[in-house]
Structure formats: structure tokens, C-alpha cells
Design a protein around this nucleic acid. Structure first.
Lengths: 137, 137
DNA sequence: CAGTATCCGAGTGGATACTG
DNA sequence: CAGTATCCACTCGGATACTG
């Protein structure tokens, strides 16, 4: 039924570039972009690749939706070859590549800083527990 | 009731750094980080500042939740002054500043490229419409 | 293979009322 | 002021079944 793209968060009164930002930082958007930075992928291939990144896989539905959104925003190029069985290749556009690189570097940053984050969490949780403990006395 | 932080997406089998990434790219996380990059804010002040960025405001609930998550991850520092009426200042930690800068640059990128995105969308929608049209004949 | 269509449960996030 | 607690609408996203 042609998915009128009124699906996502609906813009409402939100400035449009916030929307795009949400698209590329979305749960699967991030992974798709990073994966496509490596090379182009076919649909199912991409699905498997993403599932391989830890976490459980994407549903077909969400991958489709994510890809369509990114394609509409001009970040991903969809190349459907008219053969049987169907073959569709996805790749980044120039615009998409720029975005993907930023996203990847942010992802790498979080990866590199995990140690510090973990420590911060332990400290936080410890305080938290101490606080909660002497509260119920 | 002490919000056991089992709330967000729950980690499940997802690699931990994906979680942190979701925190700082979350709807309000992005805005909080960018805003705090400017200076430190009090709770309500921050709430208003964010509402001023277009889009409708954050609820107290979501702002609280967002701030707690970011604090736990060691990105935001919370300074509660024991005065009446209460005064709490939020600011970025060193770690938080690094993250925020990346997030801001991604936000700026999307802002700068909006023109191209809009054009891509128009092209996409036009094709789409043409396609849908001669389908129902 | 590459989707589309439909249903549905869980969780997000907003509104409201209340507390220290 | 700075939250917490509760309720609830709505959306996201998964499972499933079907199509070209």
C-alpha cells in the first residue's frame, strides 16, 4: 500500500534535519551504514552480515524499512537487477559515505572508551546502592 | 523505586558498546549533549533550552531518564547543591565532551546537507508516484 | 530471492499528579 | 525547583504468511 512515509515520527513540528539524524542514528541505520562502508551488499547478505555483529538479527521488515528510509534520504543506492531470481544490490551514495564515516567514527569512539564507561557505571551503581541502603532504615 | 536500569533495551545479547551508542544517539541524548557543550545547565533550564530547538519539548520524565543514563555512562556530571529550593547543575565530563563533539559534528553535517537530502527525497517520491500510478491500470 | 501485508505484544515516551 | 510515581496512547519492531 505504498507506505506514504508518514511512518517515522511524523516530523510534526520538528526541524527536518533532526529527522535525518534520527534515520542515520537509528538502531539498524547505524549498522547498515557501517556495513555498507565496507562494500555493497545484497539484501539477505546484508541481513546476515548485520546479525553477525552481535545482538540478534534484523527482521526483514525492519531492514526493508531502514533501507527505504536511507534510500529516500539519498544515502543509499538501490540497484534492482531484472533477473530471476531477483537480485538487488545496496551501496552507499557519496552523501551516504560521508554520513557513514562519521557514524563509524562515533561507533569506534564508543568502542574504544568502553573501559571508562564501565568504570563510571560501577562507581555510579555503587553509590546508588549505598544510598538506597541507608534510606530504608 | 530506584529504577534498576534494566529499562533500556536490556542489553540481551547485544555488545555493550552498541548500548552506549544508542544512549548518545537517542532522541534526547543528542540534544542534551549538544546543549551542554555550550555551558552547564540546571534541570529546568535545560528543559527549556531543548524545547527551544524546534520540535516540542522534552517531558520531565524523559529528561530525567536521559540525564541519568548519560550520568551513569560517565558522560554527564550531576552536581546537586544542598540548598532550598534545590539546585542541580548538569555539565559534561571529559568523556562526555569528546562524545558530544562528535555528535554535534554529525548534527551539523545533516544540517548542512539538508538541501541534497530534500532533493533526493523529491526524486524518490516522484519515481514512486509514477510507479504506483501505472501499476493500477 | 526480495520483498509486501497483517497482526500483535512489549516498550517508549507523554500527561498528570504528587513529594522533599 | 527537581524530581518520582502512575497511567495510558501509541509506535516500534518481531513473527508469520503470502506474492512476483
Amino acid at each position: 500500500m505504498a507506505v506514504s512515509h508518514k511512518q517515522q515520527v511524523d516530523a510534526e513540528a520538528m526541524c527536518p534535519h533532526r529527522l535525518v539524524l534520527e534515520h542515520l542514528t537509528s538502531r539498524w541505520g547505524v549498522l547498515v551504514l557501517i556495513e555498507l562502508l565496507e562494500r555493497s551488499y545484497r539484501f539477505s547478505e546484508l541481513r546476515r552480515a548485520i546479525s553477525g555483529l552481535g545482538g540478534r538479527g534484523v527482521s526483514e521488515k525492519m531492514l526493508t524499512q531502514t533501507l527505504q528510509t536511507l534510500e529516500r534520504d539519498g544515502l543509499v543506492h538501490r540497484d534492482a537487477k531484472p533477473v530471476i531470481p531477483p537480485r538487488v544490490d545496496y551501496s552507499l551514495t557519496g552523501l551516504g559515505r560521508e554520513a557513514a564515516e562519521q557514524v563509524r567514527s562515533l561507533a569506534r569512539w564508543t568502542h574504544d572508551r568502553m573501559g571508562e564507561v564501565e568504570r563510571a557505571r560501577q562507581a555510579y551503581d555503587a553509590n546508588r546502592q549505598a544510598y538506597d541502603a541507608n534510606r530504608q532504615t
